[in-house]
């Protein structure tokens, strides 16, 4: 009974998310374009699937994974777990937080694989590139980027170093890569930064950031708890471009070897 109540609350919230889109499309169709939508019935059924699917997805996460993930984030960042119960810690030692970095990275990877908006973008990229961009290849590359980003982000919270330095260095890497990466991957790489952080990743990562900054001695949740999302949206750009560069380099090398062989 309680579950049905929770589920209907989530369903209503999802419908409210879709409402502006429906209004906008209806207004434009009737007032500006003045024509009917092709395969209207199919589109409506698809829209209903999206809303119900997303609501089920979120309800399941709320029920199973978020509570567990949030509890684990606080347990792992508990000083009693990290340093042992008998020690009083005044100064955070960044070396004691190994499990946190690993947990952050793995949670980042796992949640990104399940992220519905990334699935959508990977699907579209595969279709548009006529199959040269592999869906799983793109999703795993992005997930590795998020994992690296969030790991580094937790290190930043523990060590208390300023956020803008990391972002600045990240931007510089992106700029240098943009010069050398194959042109066709650049727009997709830039996009993959934004799509990684939605329904699955944000709640877990935010809980981790706030939990960590509340328990690490000398950190202020208000100032240090933010910034993990920024890491998670910057690093996939780097890994996606890096992967494209690597693939490009490999094909070039193969071509060269083939040419040599032919010359002989």
């Amino acid at each position: 009974m309680e579950f049905i109540h929770d589920f209907s609350a989530i369903l209503v919230a999802t419908c409210r998310d879709v409402l502006p889109i429906i209004l906008l499309i209806t207004i434009f169709q009737t007032l500006v374009l003045r024509q009917s939508i092709p395969h209207l019935r199919r589109v409506i059924v698809g829209g209903v699937y999206v809303v119900i699917g997303l609501a089920l997805f979120l309800a399941g996460l709320e029920k199973a994974l978020f509570p567990l993930g949030k509890i684990m984030a606080t347990q792992l960042s508990d000083p009693a777990f990290l340093y042992g119960t008998d020690k009083i810690v005044l100064q955070a030692d960044w070396k004691a937080y190994g499990w946190i970095y690993l947990f952050a990275g793995m949670v980042g990877f796992a949640t990104t694989i399940a992220e519905p908006s990334l699935i959508a973008v990977a699907y579209k990229a595969n279709e548009v590139s006529a199959g040269t961009i592999n869906q799983w290849g793109l999703r795993i590359t992005v997930a590795i980027g998020v994992a690296l980003g969030i790991s580094l982000g937790t290190f930043r919270i523990v060590s208390g170093t300023p956020l803008y330095l990391y972002i600045l260095v990240g931007y510089l890497i992106v700029i240098v890569q943009t010069i050398f990466a194959p042109k066709s991957i650049i727009p997709l790489a830039y996009d993959s930064g934004g799509v990684t952080t939605s329904t699955v990743t944000v709640p877990l990562v935010a809980a981790l950031g706030l939990g960590l900054s509340a328990t690490v001695p000398g950190r202020n949740p208000a100032l240090d708890g933010f910034g993990l999302i920024a890491f998670a949206s910057l690093f996939p750009i780097i890994t996606v471009m890096g992967y494209a560069q690597y693939m490009h380099w490999m094909t070039q090398r193969k071509l060269k070897i083939m040419e040599k062989r032919n010359a002989l």
């Binding site: 589109v43 059924v45 209903v48 999206v50 699917g53 089920l56 997805f57 399941g60 519905p116 699907y123």
Partner: peptide, 11 residues
């Protein structure tokens, strides 16, 4: 939910 969502995307 995820299967339904992906189906809805395509449709």
């Amino acid at each position: 939910g995820l299967s339904l969502f992906v189906q809805g995307l395509e449709m």
